[in-house]
Design a protein around this nucleic acid. Sequence first.
DNA 1: ACACTATGAGTAA
DNA 2: TACTCCTAGTGTC
Length: 320
Amino acid sequence: MPEGHSVHRIAVRFREAMVGRVVHTTSPQGRFARGAGLLSGRVMEECYAVGKQMFAQFDGDLHLRVHLGIYGAWDFSMQLPDAGHTGALEGQTGEYAASPGSMGAPRAARVARVRAGEEETASGASGGVVVWPPEPVGAVRVRLLTEDVCADLRGPTVCEVLTPVEAAGHLERLGPDPAVDGKRRGWVRFRDKAAHRRTPIGTLLMDQAMIAGIGNIYRAEMLFRAGIDPYTRTVDLEESQLRALWDDWCRLLPIGIETGVIVTRTDLRGSAKQDALDSAENRHHVYGRAGQPCRVCGTAISLAQMQGRKLYWCAGCQRR
DNA sequence: ACACTATGAGTAA
DNA sequence: TACTCCTAGTGTC
């Protein structure tokens, strides 16, 4: 699910729902039991994203670092106020339900569930009456729980508690992120890191130390939008081309953060635009479209492996 | 039941 | 370049 836009969106959600509150932290799956013990009962003081990584700072200067990898995800459940359905729940059994910590006894409640970072209408809020806190479903590595919000993390590639120094070390290794560095400073950083590299631009855009937050979809789509062949060595690009790529990322990232969708067909308007948003089929220029005709020139979209990932491009529109 | 895929990235060779 | 780890959904037998 996650390229940079999703992670920024998740951080926003944490800021709205949990920053400033005491968080009861557990590891229902058990694989983060030690970290959960360190964090539980502390106030989440900050939460922010840099590239594809999220950092949450808790009181006592403990930092939670989370990287979702290809398929990690945060699911939020919100307790909805509804006096008609709340109240003590009787006959509740099971270890988890019997150990609510400081968050009160399990009780019936109306609960909305949302996959964080994505467009929210798609995953849908149920609002059904269930137990609060919700029973963990699947392999929940971490559960962050406040009085009325529950965030469950599954399948992260990284989930660890760090000291401030350790957290700073990870941040230093990341390239510029438009949402963190801003357009001007970010460009200077990007140019200084990238301009002289001999690496193919298709590889470089995926290197989080060069530019943070771009994943396989944005990579393919941005190179199409720029009309650049993915195999072009970065050093062989005109500075204006490198600049155009940075500027495009500065344009696309906020749209992704705003919508929760990777929108790259920004030429579309009206019903065509809506169609592209609604159906994955029409969403992209080249990503996932191997063998299908380019929407611009009709050339069959190419597919190759680059650094172990699928690379899509249009050999007609994208030149060295 | 099993195979395969995925918007990621670290490590070994 | 290849293998490893993380999880869930979909497709195939």
